[in-house]
Amino acid sequence: MFMSSDIATPGTTPERHIVQPGDAQHPIVLSTEDLHVFYGDKEALSEGDLKFARNQITALIGASGSGKSTFLRSLNRMNDRIATVKGRIMYRGVDINQPDIDVYEMRRRIGMVFQRPNPFAKSIYDNIAFALRLRGITAKNKLDEIVETSLRQAALWDQVKDELDKSALALSGGQAQRLCIARAIAVKPDVLLLDEPASALDPVSTSQLEDTLLKLKQHYTIIIVTHNMQQAARISEYTAFFNQGRVLEYDTTSQIFTNPQVQVTSDYVSGNFG
């Protein structure tokens, strides 16, 4: 197999195309440097260095097995137990991939929402409040306030405000996922990582979730893995395209979808992939 760089001539498509995101209003909050992820001996991510701008939504797209979820889960070290992550993960100037970083403190700043809604077997209220209680916030009025703002930000407040004592396991899929978002933002994170948060939801819930994310970006830096290209196009400012454990293209979302520079990206976004 030829490497694409071998056959590329000036003026035709490059092998990789990476831009620097961010500006004065949207400084870089999180970036990776020389990141490599291994599952055992197998390298799952080799060239995956990206920078993420504050208060923007960045979408990570690519086929399954392309390394996008591996990348995302490395960012707040959720993969520590199953993978070896080498390289630096710079969060506001601090490398959080050092062994003496307190991962629990770090994960309160870099929160995560998963593919399948995973509400705890507790009441709606306690789903949000219990992690706060463990961190020393016990005053009832303070808890009430955080629960309400979190639920409002996640656009769930109006639907559940009268049944906060109800078990969260009784919620519908879309509501449960928004509860998980509320739960994640209740600890006041800085960055929010979302791993295909809408893949288990119906179209209506999906579109509500997207509205919620668009509102949330004024408070948080959001990185979202999605296999749904329309979704990436609808909500994100920047998009990164992953292929076989490498980032091939990283640019503004409109560029990626209207004028991709790399041939494989072009094939993928136009549906001619595989």
């Binding site: 959720m78 629990y104 998963f114 995973n118 705890f120 994640a184």
Partner: peptide, 17 residues
């Protein structure tokens, strides 16, 4: 479900908590 464990860890809780 393991998703429950992930949920706790992602909130900054230790495995024990």
């Amino acid at each position: 479900d393991d998703k429950q464990r992930e949920g706790g860890l992602a909130l900054g809780l230790s495995r024990w908590e």
